[in-house]
Computed example of a mutant assay.
Amino acid sequence: MADSLREQLLKSGIAKQVPETRPARPAGSKPGQGRAAAKSGAALRGKGGGHPVSSRKAAGDGEDINLAKAWAVRAQVEQKEKRQAEAEAAEKARQKRERKLKLQQLLEGKALNIEAAEQVRHFTYGGKIRRIYVNDEQLKALNAGELGVVQKDGRYLLVSRDIALEVQTLEPRVLALLVEPGQGGVDEDGIPDDLMW
Rank of each mutant, 00 (worst) to 15 (best):
A85N: 10
G62H: 06
A59Q: 13
V149K: 04
L139F: 10
E118W: 02
L67V: 03
L139I: 00
A117W: 10
A75M: 09
Q17V: 14
A70Q: 11
L5A: 12
R173T: 13
D162W: 02
D162M: 07
L106D: 04
Q76P: 00
V53M: 07
A27F: 10
A24D: 12
E115T: 12
G154F: 06
G148A: 03
V174K: 04
R161K: 14
K30C: 03
R94I: 01
E171T: 15
K128F: 07
R74K: 15
D153H: 09
L5R: 14
V179A: 11
V120A: 11
G60Y: 08
T169F: 02
D136I: 10
G32C: 07
D162F: 05
E171K: 14
L170K: 11
G148H: 04
G50F: 03
R35N: 12
K92L: 13
P19S: 13
K152P: 00
G41K: 10
P192Q: 06
V73H: 09
K47C: 02
A93G: 04
Q104H: 13
T124D: 11
E98F: 02
G34H: 02
V120S: 09
L5P: 04
G49A: 05
E115M: 07
R25H: 05
A37N: 08
I65P: 00
R130Y: 00
Q33C: 03
A111D: 12
P23H: 06
A117Q: 01
G185F: 05
A116P: 00
P181C: 02
L175R: 01
K47R: 15
G109H: 08
A58S: 12
L158M: 08
A85I: 05
D187I: 00
Q138W: 01
E188T: 11
